[in-house]
Computed example of a mutant assay.
Amino acid sequence: MRKIIMFLMLSTLLTAQKTQIIELRNSIKDKKHLAKSLTLLDKRENKNIGIISHRKEPYEVKFEKDDLEELFSNWFIEDNKERGSVEYFLILEDLKVNDIPTERSVMGHLDMQMATFLKRNNKYYFLKKFKISKDYTQKDHAYITRSIAAKISAELSNIVKDSYTISALNIPISETDLGDYEKVISEQLPVFSSESFTDGVYTDYRSFAEQKPDKELMVRKNKEGVIKGVKRVDDYDNLNKAIFAVIDNGIAYKKTPTSLIEIEKDSEGYFITASEEELFPQPNTSVMVAGAAGGLIGGLIAAVIDITASKIRKQNAKYYRVGIDALTGEYILPENFRKFKY
């Protein structure tokens, strides 16, 4: 009798558990009408997304249907009545939510990773990768479960729409290699496969990875040969252009908001050794003040590109190995680098 009562109680709890649905309502319309299809490749080992709480009530986070391939295909078809010939693929690598207990309550946590490819001549070509690890606190999000579900839906939409406009990386990989695409692709990128760097100025990670410096820009040095900035090859300073990195005399430097920091390499890949303040300076730092004093663009860029600043590093600062993602160039922050990562 006792077993029957326990079974009924458990059944009631399972039935009563609430569900938070991830609704695929955001637009993924291809305005150029080049896309033919969108196919989801679910590579997650565990298909369950997880449970998070709202006001101490557990909510299971789920998609509208269990058949995700059909769900995503229908989502694409509904938004794209006029279609072209390009086949797009969205690889879902990780999607997890969970509760994190705090002193006073609980906050929600989201981990998400995905990538997009296009298919041509039975080969796959990388487009974009997205990864997020984010905490949701009660004070910032009145309804955590809805906020997380909306974030998941929005990021799925964003990566698909962005992929329509991105040039594919010209490294074909087979379907069998999709499960290990990061390693397969990175090994073929010139920045990893070449024995030396190509000197020059790189405005984004893609150009750095392919070792194709900007032909209109060059490193600017003082009389002592110290890097002081970048300039156009016609000698006019180009202070309003984004810079990812510069390479001088075969040495690569990552541009950060406060300095240039040498890019190093180990068995795990490329990285820089940096403090939190160097990567995420507070608005009242001297660099920001210098920027305001010299004009929003001119002063700030002049300050951040000065390589001598990287030599003046605070004695009491804590430095970390900060990885550089092989496919995106984004920082791979170590644990506890920042309390909240967005």
Rank of each mutant, 00 (worst) to 15 (best):
E278W: 00
I4S: 07
I159H: 02
D180A: 11
S147E: 14
L68K: 06
F117K: 03
S267W: 09
L14A: 12
S286D: 15
Q315T: 14
M107W: 01
T19K: 15
L8W: 08
Q17P: 06
R220L: 14
P281H: 07
E45S: 13
A149Q: 03
H141G: 08
L118C: 05
L10H: 06
S193R: 15
I5M: 13
R55T: 06
E335G: 02
D248W: 02
I251C: 08
Y164S: 01
V289R: 10
D79E: 04
T39H: 02
E268N: 14
Y236G: 02
M9E: 12
G200W: 03
P283Q: 10
V246T: 11
S207V: 09
L327N: 05
E278N: 01
L300V: 01
L13S: 13
K29E: 00
K131Y: 07
Y124L: 09
Y59H: 15
Y164F: 12
D204P: 07
V230N: 03
S157Q: 01
A302C: 11
S157Y: 00
S310T: 09
K29L: 00
V191T: 08
Q20Y: 09
Y124T: 07
P58R: 08
D67R: 11
E78Q: 04
K134Y: 09
I305L: 13
D248E: 15
S133K: 12
L217N: 10
D177C: 06
R104V: 10
H54I: 05
I51P: 04
Y253C: 03
A274D: 00
V287E: 03
I21M: 11
E268Y: 09
K18E: 13
I227D: 01
Q315G: 11
V184K: 10
I305R: 08
D214P: 08
I5D: 12
I166M: 06
P257R: 04
D67P: 08
M107L: 12
T258Q: 04
E210D: 12
K341G: 10
F7I: 08
I100E: 15
Y202E: 03
I324M: 06
I4V: 11
E268Q: 13
D177T: 09
V230C: 06
I332C: 02
A209L: 06
E82T: 12
K29R: 04
F89N: 00
M288N: 05
Y342E: 14
E82Y: 07
L260K: 02
T145P: 08
N336S: 09
P172F: 06
K31Y: 05
N80L: 00
S196R: 15
T12C: 15
T102M: 07
E87G: 01
I21V: 15
D42Y: 08
N122M: 09
D42T: 07
G200D: 11
E87Y: 02
K96D: 07
E335M: 05
A293W: 01
S186N: 08
Y319W: 10
K62H: 09
E330N: 15
K36R: 14
L92A: 09
D306Y: 09
